[in-house]
């Protein structure tokens, strides 16, 4: 599983980051973001690419687990 840290990044950087990572066609990715726009946008991108997304929130940060 590839782990990505997009904290401190504003849109569209987190989506660009996950897009680049998913080009390798992995089955599972985990990304940490620290704003709701990034959480929503990365979720949309992953779903668009056919991944299922689970989100856990903690202290203003969101961990997105994306599985194919």
């Amino acid at each position: 599983m590839e782990k990505l840290d997009a904290r401190g990044l504003s849109c569209p950087e987190p989506v660009i980051m996950i897009r680049k990572a998913m080009l390798s066609g992995g089955e599972r990715y985990e990304m940490v973001v620290d704003n709701t726009a990034a959480k929503e946008n990365v979720t949309r991108y992953a779903q668009h690419q056919g991944y299922q997304v689970a989100v856990t929130a903690s202290g203003g940060e969101y961990t997105l687990t994306m599985t194919k």
Partner: peptide, 12 residues
């Protein structure tokens, strides 16, 4: 582009 998550933070 919206379906792919290229949505500005202002939209949220």
């Amino acid at each position: 582009m919206a379906a792919m998550g290229f949505i500005p933070a202002g939209a949220y």
